[in-house]
Amino acid sequence: MESLSKRPILGAITLGAFTAIATLALGLFLQYFLHRLLPERLWGTLAAREDLNQPAVLVFFTAVIFAPLFETILGQVIPIEIARRFGINRWVCVLISAAVFGGGHYLNGGLLHGLVTFFTGIMLAALYLMLRRNSPASSYVGVVTAHAVHNAILLYVLAAIFPSMA
Rank of each mutant, 00 (worst) to 15 (best):
R84Y: 03
N89D: 15
A98I: 02
A126Y: 13
P136T: 11
T145M: 03
M130T: 08
S138H: 07
G102C: 07
P136D: 11
V59F: 11
P79S: 06
V94T: 14
S97E: 12
F118D: 04
V116C: 09
I78C: 07
F66Q: 11
E71Q: 00
L111M: 10
S139D: 09
G87M: 07
V143H: 00
V57F: 08
M130K: 11
S139W: 07
A99K: 01
H105Q: 13
S138I: 12
L74E: 03
L95D: 03
N89P: 03
A83Y: 01
V100D: 12
Y128M: 05
R84W: 00
F86R: 13
C93N: 15
I73P: 02
A137K: 14
P68E: 02
V100P: 06
I122K: 01
A99E: 03
L131F: 06
L131V: 10
T62S: 15
G142W: 05
G102F: 10
L115G: 10
Y106M: 14
T120R: 07
F66I: 04
S97G: 14
G109C: 09
L127S: 05
T120M: 09
T145P: 01
R90W: 10
R133D: 13
T120K: 02
N108D: 08
I80G: 10
L95Y: 12
L131T: 11
L74M: 11
G110L: 05
V64I: 15
V92M: 14
F61Q: 02
V92T: 14
G110W: 07
M130D: 05
G114Y: 14
G103P: 04
V64A: 13
E81Y: 09
F70W: 06
L124N: 04
